[in-house]
Amino acid sequence: MPKKNPVIEIKMEWCKGCAFCVEFCPKEVLQMKGIYPVVAKIEDCTACGLCEVLCPDFAIEVIAEDEAVKK
């Protein structure tokens, strides 16, 4: 069975563009586009959740594969 990627949801209306999620992602999954982050390489995401933990604005959520299935 092929690996299913996690889902990263970004809530633009709460995001203030601090870029913590982009800078501290160990796999460089995210990158800034203008003042907001976007998911660039979801296939590299290990669902470690660091971007979510470090987002001060509750604007990013990582849904791991098993969670995504449940949803």
Binding site: E13, W14, K16, G17, C18, F20, V53, L54, C55, P56, D57, F58
Partner: peptide, 22 residues
């Protein structure tokens, strides 16, 4: 959370939200 009070008042890059989450 009281989601209807969001977004948070703090500036971009303020660490306070990280503490709140923890």
């Amino acid at each position: 959370l009281r989601l209807n009070k969001f977004p948070l008042i703090w500036c971009a890059g303020c660490g306070d939200g990280i503490v709140l989450k923890a």
